[in-house]
Amino acid sequence: MLQLVADGFIIGSVIALGAIGVTLVYSILRFANFAHGELLTWGAYLAWTALIGIVAVWGPAEPLGPFSFGWPLLVALAISAVATAALALLVDRLLFRQLRQHGNAITLIMASFGAALVLRNLLQFIYGSIPEYYSREIQVAIRLIPRDVLGGLRITPDQLFVLGLTAVSVVSLHGFLTRTTLGKAMRATSNNPQLARVTGIDVDQIIRATWIIGAVLATVAGVFSGLTVQLRPQLGLDLLLPLFAAAILGGIGSVYGAVVGGLIVGLAESLSVPLVGAEYRAATAFAVLIAILLIRPTGLFGERT
């Protein structure tokens, strides 16, 4: 039982970080971005490439403390975050921006669906479809709670790292949105883009910031997924439905909602395994989604539909 809860929080962290991007893009650019999952995949794979590059130049490094990875992975994560943000900006420049100027939200969704397929297949073309790993080290899970208390709890240091860095990311983002001018301007733009413009806010700049933040968090989420599971070209596609479910559950446009939504969807997925079997865990997100649409479509923290 405890173990399932812990697993749920770990998968929930990945979902939460991805869902923040979905909800930010939705609230600023006003469309459900079906290509967001691919940012997770690209983030994960670009980090893998960077990791290989680093190891090729500086040689393999000792793992950091109890973790399965050394400093190269952290550097690779940073490099990949920059590259993934550049990718997101490029897609926006070539595709979404053109459509924004004369299209409507629905053509944007359509285009994002197409962009998702192109990005995924391009990635598969480059990397192939065999699963990859950041590290082949086998980690020993630490027993936190003995087996006789609610089934006990074992957790690997990498999983603790995921939980910790997720918390740090969310807290930093919160600070950014409530304390900085750019963050407040983002909230203002999400509330009312036209008023933001007449207030002097350069909405194009806000849009760029949105993509960068979304892509950076997607990279972190993608790397976490690669670290705790494995790297596959379908990594992002498989997470897309949970991301949407989390964003809607939290109330679309609400960053904190996305975090809570992500954790709930992660927990639901994990706890559903003994009930419906591991093969259907992905459908749990769908059940959560339909339930929230029927019961409270504005989500837990939603302000408006």
Partner: peptide, 23 residues
Amino acid sequence: AAHHMAHEGLGFVPQTENVFVNL
């Protein structure tokens, strides 16, 4: 562009939705 106008010295009060309700 609209966002330059405020910097130029034009203030504008729209008819509706003229404050950021989430701030």
